[in-house]
Computed example of a mutant assay.
Amino acid sequence: MDTDTQHTERDRSFGPAEGPEEGSRFSRIQGRMSTAMSWRRAVSLGAALTVVLLLFSNFVVQPFLIPSGSMEPTLRVGDRVLVNKLAYRFGPAPQRGDVVVFDGTGSFVQETSGGDPLAALLRGAASSLGLAEPAETDFVKRVVGVGGDRVVCCDQRGRLQVNGRSVDEPYLYRGDEPSSVAFDVVVPQGSLWMMGDHRSNSRDSRELLGRPGGGMVPVDMVIGRVDWLGWPLGRLGSVPGTGAFDGVGVPGGAHG
């Protein structure tokens, strides 16, 4: 009896031996499975980070892309600022001189009917992360008058007056006058009078004089205070404050 043949037949009964081709195929399958698992982990991690960032943006600090030059030189087109949403939630109401982001629906813009809800959702998410321009209803301006203030333009030297005191505004765009439009308004309680720093290039409360609401923005529509510049890196830092309104008192105070 041929023992070599007997052993060969016995070995084949346990299945074919794994050759180079089978091993290579197995390695490729393992590689594809490993890659798929890596992609799933990456996608899951990315989704979790996005959710965390959106929650942080909605409730704490929101990046905001500056779309226009109405706040130059303080804020420039393309700047990405960080809006402190807790500034007024646990602290005082907006103060004169604060730079704020607010929803202008019902004041700066008319009520709008909803468009494509999915597109609006995606745009809102991108805007919340500072990746897209803000909604057309969002504005960034400086608070010039708060509830009860009388804001007048202008005194004999062309300066704004708030509650009878003239205000020097060092943040104005070079060459701009405080306002080319004369006005005399009293800000209702719970509202704000808003103006851009680039007065000749700013659509603000002045443009809405004589219209319903008179250009006043409800305090409840303020999204937050612009506290920091996050981009570009050369301008990284806090948004400078101003002492322009330090001498302004309550309505009926002494004239300056």
Rank of each mutant, 00 (worst) to 15 (best):
V77E: 00
A126L: 12
R76S: 14
S107F: 01
V77Q: 05
G91H: 02
A87V: 08
L82E: 04
V81L: 02
G91I: 01
G97K: 00
L86E: 02
A126N: 09
D103I: 08
A126M: 10
D79C: 02
D103L: 07
G78H: 00
L86C: 07
V99A: 03
S68E: 03
G69V: 05
F108S: 05
P94Q: 06
S57I: 11
F90K: 03
V61C: 13
N84R: 05
G104P: 08
A119P: 03
D79G: 04
V77H: 03
S107P: 11
D103C: 07
F90S: 08
S68M: 02
D98M: 09
L86P: 06
Q62K: 15
A93M: 06
V60S: 13
G114T: 13
F59G: 11
S68T: 15
I66W: 02
T112S: 15
V81Q: 01
A126S: 14
L53Q: 14
F59M: 11
P94T: 04
G124T: 10
S113W: 08
G124E: 06
Y88K: 08
V77C: 03
D79T: 01
A120G: 15
V99Y: 05
L53I: 13
T112I: 09
V61F: 15
D98H: 09
G106M: 00
R89K: 15
P92W: 04
V101R: 04
A125T: 12
L86F: 04
P67L: 00
V101H: 09
G104Y: 01
A93W: 03
L54R: 13
G115M: 02
V60Q: 12
L75M: 04
L82A: 15
A120L: 10
Q95V: 03
L82Y: 12
D116L: 02
Q95A: 14
P117G: 11
G78I: 00
L54K: 14
V109F: 03
A126I: 06
G106D: 00
V109H: 07
A93I: 03
N84E: 06
M71A: 02
T74M: 10
E111G: 07
G114Q: 15
A125N: 07
M71C: 07
T105V: 12
L122N: 05
Q62N: 14
S107K: 01
L122V: 14
L118Q: 12
R96E: 03
Y88A: 06
D103Q: 07
S70M: 06
V61G: 10
V101A: 10
F108G: 02
G69I: 05
V101W: 05
P73T: 01
L86T: 13
I66V: 15
F56Q: 12
G69P: 12
N58M: 10
D103G: 11
R80H: 09
A126H: 11
G114I: 10
V61S: 12
R123M: 09
D116E: 01
F102N: 07
D79L: 01
P94M: 06
